[in-house]
């Protein structure tokens, strides 16, 4: 694995982005084991950031009619209903009579998703206008007065977070309440969360707290508890917003091993350069071959000056 500023561990992204005297990097630790699915975070986020309504639908996806993160949804509470075998130290819910199959039980997993504020953020890397930038807090924010709606950040994000708002054309996503942070407040979602499932704070401290929480859950027999996005060695250099999950990430709609594709940019440019040269070479060869004496005897009417 190559190590450069495009990928790998990176202790202080704010300073790397040119913020001198940056405050400590902040982030979210979302502990889904205590999420009760109340959606207070979704509502608080919409309210504080004045995000427009983006459609109402009954999806049939458990209690989730929000469906996913997008231009006008910056916090999204996922509801996973699972049929699980009895036992195994899981949270057990009594079944409605006749609802069970094969002796299994149903459990709900709830998780409040958000922009990960990646250490190596693909959206920021590929933004051609500089609209996406790294704040002094180490978070990733779109400047909506600069964004020209090129849409490149949308497929670049390995988590499917950022999106263009159709009515507007520009890209939007979670700012980790940049305005509130500047005023010394915590983000609206964390403030509203009644169970402290969403914890806001200095990232280093959150990581320590999360490690303790996982240990505690493991001791209590919840062996499926695992952290997601906490590891600075992962494909995006660790997330500024990381999670404690109770199942595989893909169950919650999260990618199991996301990478910042800019990691491969040096390789891509090298291949593009070679390809560009081979294009030239191909034409050079074509001209050279047709400069060979034509065997059929038909000549090119004497126009050719130099061979």
């Amino acid at each position: 694995m190559t190590h450069h500023l495009l990928s790998g561990p990176e202790h202080d992204p704010a300073r790397d982005a040119g913020h001198e005297n940056a405050p400590p990097r902040v982030g979210f630790f979302t502990d889904t084991s205590v999420c009760i699915g109340c959606k207070a975070c979704e509502v608080a986020c919409k309210e504080w950031n004045a995000i427009p309504e983006d459609g109402m639908a009954f999806t049939g996806m458990s209690y989730d009619n929000t469906q996913g993160l997008g231009a006008s949804t910056w916090r999204h509470v996922a509801f996973v209903e699972q049929s699980v075998p009895t036992g195994g130290g899981r949270t057990r819910l009594p079944l409605v009579s006749g609802g069970g199959t094969g002796g299994g039980e149903v459990r709900w997993l709830m998780s409040s998703d958000v922009c990960k504020h990646c250490t190596h953020a693909a959206c920021l890397d590929v933004c051609p206008t500089g609209s996406l930038f790294r704040t002094e807090f180490g978070t990733v924010v779109v400047q909506d007065d600069i964004c020209n709606g090129c849409g490149y950040c949308v497929p670049a994000c390995p988590y499917g977070v950022i999106e263009q708002r159709p009515s507007d054309g520009r890209a939007f996503k979670c700012t980790m309440c940049y305005d509130r942070l500047g005023a010394g407040l915590e983000p609206a979602c964390a403030k509203a969360c009644p169970t402290e499932s969403i914890q806001f704070g200095e990232l280093d401290e959150l990581r320590e707290r999360a490690a303790l929480r996982v240990d505690q859950l493991h001791k209590e027999g919840v062996t499926d508890a695992r952290l997601y996005g906490h590891d600075p060695q992962d494909g995006v250099g660790g997330d500024g917003a990381f999670f404690l999950l109770l199942d595989e990430p893909e169950v919650y709609g999260l990618p199991p091993a996301p990478v910042v594709t800019t990691r491969d940019l040096p390789v891509m440019w090298r291949h593009a350069a070679t390809a560009a040269l081979s294009l030239m070479g191909g034409f050079a060869l074509s001209f050279a071959l047709s400069a060979l004496p034509a065997r059929t005897g038909r000549t090119r009417t004497g126009r050719r000056g130099r061979a």
């Binding site: 469906q67 996922a78 209903e81 950022i162 709609g253």
Partner: peptide, 23 residues
């Protein structure tokens, strides 16, 4: 076994895309 919830739940979140396709 007869799944109570869509089977794809185990591989994905209700079959929803993980990443966003370019617009």
């Amino acid at each position: 076994e007869e799944p109570m919830v869509p089977r794809a739940t185990f591989d994905s979140y209700y079959g929803r895309p993980v990443i966003k396709a370019p617009g």
